[in-house]
Amino acid sequence: MAAVIEAEGLGKDYTVAEGPLLRRRRRRVSAVRDVSFRVAPGEIVGYLGPNGAGKSTTLKMLIGILAPSTGRVRVTGLEPVRARTRLARRIGVVFGQRTTLWWDLPLRDSLALTRHLYRVPRADHARRLAELTEVLELAPFLATPVRQLSLGQRMRGDLAAALLHAPQVLVLDEPTIGLDVVSKTAIREFLLRLNAERGTTILLTTHDLGDVQRLCRRVMVIDGGRLAFDGDLTGLHAVAPSPRTLVVDLAAPAAPIAVPGARTVRVEGPRQWLELEGNPARVIAQVAADYEVADITLREPDIEEVVHRIYADR
C-alpha cells in the first residue's frame, strides 16, 4: 500500500549567531538529522520526544511551513513546500497552543470563513458542519466569540475547522495540552471514531502518554533530532525494558519484604513497592506464603518511564 506520508533522510539545519554583538560567530545547528519513515493510510502514529528533540520541526516540514535542508518528503504524493496550497486541501492541522479560529468572531462565523478558505461547496460544508457539531457537541457555544471559549471548547472548535474540508491526513501538535480529564477523553474518543469511520490518517505529537496508550498503534521516538525508535508499544517496552512493580498491602506495617526475585524499593505504612527481578507468579506466591497480605497488585511500566529510559541511554 502506498504511503500517505513518506520521509527519507529528512534533515533541517539552522544558522545561529553567538558571541558579542560586534563579534558574532555563526554556527550550524541540526534540529532534525537523517529521519526516515513511512505512514500508511489509516494509521494513528504518535511522534514522541522531549522539548527541542525535533518534533515540531518535523511537522512543519511535513505541512510545508519549513523546507528541508536535506532529504525528501512527500505527503499524499505532494512535495509540501512546492505544493503547499494543494496540500492544504488534503490535510488538517491543529496546534494545541495556537488557534486557527478568528479570536473576536463567534465560533459559527469562524467555521463559515473556513469554508471559503478551502473552497468547500456550500452543501458539503453544511453537511460536515452538522456532523461535527453533533459529534463534538459544539451547539451550546457556536454563537460564543472564540476569545470567550474555554480551552476544551476552543480545541473542539479547532478540530472542527481542521476537518470541515474532509482531509486525508490530520496532523496534531499537543491536541490535549492543558485540558481536563473529561475534555481529554472526549477528544480521544472523537479521534478514534474519526479514524475508524473515515480512515483518516493521524500523526500526533504529545507529552501526554495517556494519548499514546489510548490512540496510537505505532510510536516513533525522536531524540536529538534522530529517530531513536519506530514500532509498536510492545516493541517500545522491549527496546527499553523497565521492571514491573508489585504493590503489596499488608495487614499491618512491617519491615521491608524480603523474598527471592524482588527488591523492596519503597515502604509507606502497610503498603510496600517491590521491583520484580524474577518470575512474577513465584514472587507473588512467596509473598502470600510468608506475609499476611490484604491486597496485591502487579503494575506494568508505563510508556513515560520507557521513553525516559531511551533518553537516558542515549
Rank of each mutant, 00 (worst) to 15 (best):
G54F: 05
K55Q: 08
L62G: 03
G64V: 09
G64I: 03
A67G: 00
S69A: 10
S69N: 06
G71I: 11
G71R: 14
R74I: 02
V75F: 00
T76Y: 13
T76R: 06
E79F: 07
P80H: 04
R82C: 05
R82H: 08
A83L: 03
L87A: 01
A88L: 01
R90C: 03
R90S: 12
I91R: 07
I91T: 08
G92D: 10
V93G: 08
V93W: 09
V93D: 04
V93F: 13
V94D: 10
F95K: 03
T100R: 11
D104W: 02
D104R: 12
L105I: 04
L107Q: 12
L107E: 07
R108P: 00
R108A: 09
D109S: 11
D109I: 05
L111D: 03
A112P: 00
L113T: 09
T114A: 11
H116Q: 07
L117R: 06
L117G: 05
Y118C: 04
V120H: 10
P121Y: 02
P121A: 02
P121W: 01
R122D: 00
A123K: 13
A123P: 05
H125M: 02
H125R: 04
H125E: 04
A126H: 06
R127M: 05
R127Y: 04
R128E: 15
R128T: 13
L129I: 09
L129A: 13
A130S: 04
A130N: 05
A130G: 06
E131T: 12
L132Q: 13
T133F: 01
T133M: 02
V135E: 14
L136M: 08
E137L: 04
L138H: 02
L138K: 07
L138S: 00
P140K: 10
P140S: 10
F141H: 15
F141W: 13
L142Q: 01
L142G: 02
L142P: 05
A143C: 11
A143L: 15
V146G: 13
V146Y: 05
V146I: 08
R147A: 04
R147I: 02
Q148D: 10
Q148V: 01
Q148F: 11
